[in-house]
Design a protein around this nucleic acid. Structure first.
Length: 578
DNA sequence: ATAGGGTTAG
């Protein structure tokens, strides 16, 4: 792995900068140790007579950008221009890159005007930089427009431009991986050929989205073309196989785990890699171990853990956290704790994340006192808990019946605020109030929060209260809350509608439920989920209307919504949840 | 040689 880690060690500040063109009287080489050195150097250079060449200035600006000091780079450029340094295209490209990273696409575009003003020509790099900026700032349509603009200006595309575009397509909110694949296919007969970066980009996206089979097809294609998978390709595939079949919403409902049998395929791939002597590293071990943990095979994960140590790989903090999480998922928190101490013994310093896993674990098995002890331990080591730490504790306190302690903790957060409570903190309390105490108390507390603590409720907050009202058969109040949330421009989601549908079905108002489904859910473009299906069909069957149930099934089916065997199974598992 | 694409895990 030395090979891969090397570039990371070669940080910009380790480089030496040579001012061959205009040496200073005393020395011709500067050591740039950090951002301060770079800034100081530019300040000295702008006052030299004659001025050093623009190439030297641009080199240093480039280093500053690599250190991610975008605003600094821009300020220094302004100083340079003021002192009479004449920029060229490369300098402008750096500026555009800075503005893109700062999310200021308006300024990035204004640099284009500057380029023309200074008599320079934008080149393929200029456009690639702009395109990347538009992609990451979620303006994919404008990015495609850049592409057309380049065609009009007859600027030749190169592999980096295509790589940028492919990545943009894959990651855009439209999730257009298919378009990216099409673009790749179109390139095959062209001058610029698809390369490893482009394939890896698409394979990674396909795997993340769970389209593991398509990713494999693409891998075969790249091999046929003589492009061989590297460590990134393998890690994407292994990650994809570990997560295959795991639906995010279900995973969260089932407290993080959901079974699939493709982890074994992931392991086969891993073994294949090792047999072939491919490069592999700690990250691949971590991905696979996490796959085992999420699929209820902590034992396998632990075996892998020992194996990696035998092979001379040093587990890192993430390795330990993954294993700890695995044990917490099956409620073996003491095992997680042992690992935690083992980690400290090897000289690793636990971070907030690893503490949070332990705290969450103790809360889940209702040993909140020990969770609080862990919090104390965090304070002792001068680690600052984050909002997840506190929210886990608040939830734990609520679930073990200590709602008043939970309120106390939230008050502390509110008054001494490091960190202050967020909307999730309050939602946890509201949910608990609805469940344990009374919905009236929850609503009163809700109002208090809005007026006294300028609480900004979200859709989830309303869902909690609406559900609370419905469970107490107070449909009118539920509808009032529903209207209130719409009035606040909060858009009800499928969870909101499922709550209402459930209430209508329970209140024998099935025709209203059907109208809600047709005119407020489907017509508004909201996708019904499995739960929606189940609520309605069950409701209709219970009311002795099997014909209507079939009609509704058909209605949903022809619109592309249909449950399969697995979804029914999941529905059964998730009963009682919305 | 100064500018632009994929950095995967909790």
């Amino acid at each position: 792995m030395q090979f891969l880690k090397l570039p990371r060690l070669l940080m910009p500040h380790m480089r030496r900068i040579h001012l061959h063109s205009q040496p200073l009287p005393s020395e011709s080489t500067y050591r740039i140790g950090g951002i301060d050195d770079a800034v100081a150097l530019i300040h000295r250079m702008v006052d030299m007579h004659p001025l050093p060449s623009i190439v030297e200035f641009t080199k240093i600006l480039g280093m500053i950008v690599k250190m991610k000091y975008y605003a600094t780079a821009i300020n220094l450029y302004t100083l340079m221009e003021y002192k009479g340094v004449v920029p060229f295209t490369v300098t402008f490209n750096i500026l555009i890159n800075c503005f893109c990273h700062m999310g200021r696409m308006d300024f990035a575009f204004s640099v284009m005007g500057k380029i023309i003003k200074w008599g320079c020509q934008p080149n393929v790099v200029t456009f690639t930089t702009l395109m990347k900026g538009l992609c990451v700032n979620d303006k994919m349509l404008d990015a495609l427009h850049i592409y057309n603009e380049m065609v009009a200006r007859r600027i030749l595309f190169d592999d980096v431009l295509y790589g940028t575009l492919i990545n943009g397509l894959c990651k855009s909110k439209m999730g257009n991986t298919r378009a990216a694949i099409q673009l790749l296919q179109k390139m095959e007969g062209q001058l610029v050929k698809p390369n490893l970066v482009m394939y890896n980009t698409i394979v990674h996206c396909l795997c993340k989205d769970g389209h593991i089979n398509e990713a494999r097809v693409l891998c075969s294609k790249m091999i046929v073309q003589g492009i061989f998978p590297d460590i990134f390709t393998f890690s994407s595939l292994i990650y994809g196989l570990c997560r295959a079949g795991q639906r995010k919403e279900v995973r969260s409902l089932l407290n993080g785990y959901c079974l699939n049998n493709r982890v074994d395929e992931a392991r086969e791939l891993f073994n294949l890699m090792i047999e072939r002597g491919e490069q592999h590293d700690i990250i691949i071990y971590n991905i696979l171990m996490n796959g085992y943990c999420l699929n209820n095979k902590v034992g396998e994960a632990k075996k892998l853990f020992h194996r990696m140590i035998e092979r001379g790989e040093q587990p890192d903090i993430i390795t330990y956290t993954i294993l700890m999480h695995g044990y917490c998922l099956i409620d073996r928190v003491d095992e997680a704790r042992k690992l935690f101490h083992g980690m400290i013994e090897t000289g690793l310093v636990p971070d907030v994340w690893s503490y949070n896993i332990l705290i969450k674990g103790y809360c889940k098995i209702e040993r909140v006192d020990e969770a609080m002890n862990v919090l104390e331990h965090m304070f002792l080591t001068n680690l600052v808990p984050n909002i997840i730490t506190y929210n886990s504790l608040v939830d734990g306190l609520c679930k073990s019946g200590g709602i008043s302690d939970a309120c106390k903790l939230v008050d502390e957060m509110h008054y001494c605020g490091q960190p202050p409570p967020d909307v999730t903190t309050y939602n946890i309390l509201l949910e608990s109030l609805c469940r344990i105490e009374h919905v009236d108390k929850a609503i009163a507390f809700f109002k208090h929060l809005i007026f006294e603590r300028s609480f900004a409720p979200n859709v989830w907050s309303y869902n909690i209260l609406i559900s609370g009202c419905c469970k107490n058969r107070r449909l009118d109040e539920a509808m009032n809350l529903f209207n209130q949330m719409c009035f606040k421009n909060l858009v009800p989601d499928i969870v909101t509608y499922n709550i209402l549908l459930d209430a209508l079905c329970n209140g024998q108002q099935l025709d209203k439920a059907i109208a809600l489904l047709k005119y407020q859910i489907v017509d508004q473009g909201i996708s019904p989920n499995l739960r929606t299906y189940n609520i309605l069909i069950n409701g209709l069957h219970k009311s002795g209307r099997p014909k209507t149930a079939r009609k509704i099934s058909q209605y949903l089916f022809i619109r592309g919504y249909h449950p399969d065997v697995q979804t029914y199974l999941i529905n059964e598992l998730c009963k009682g949840y919305h």
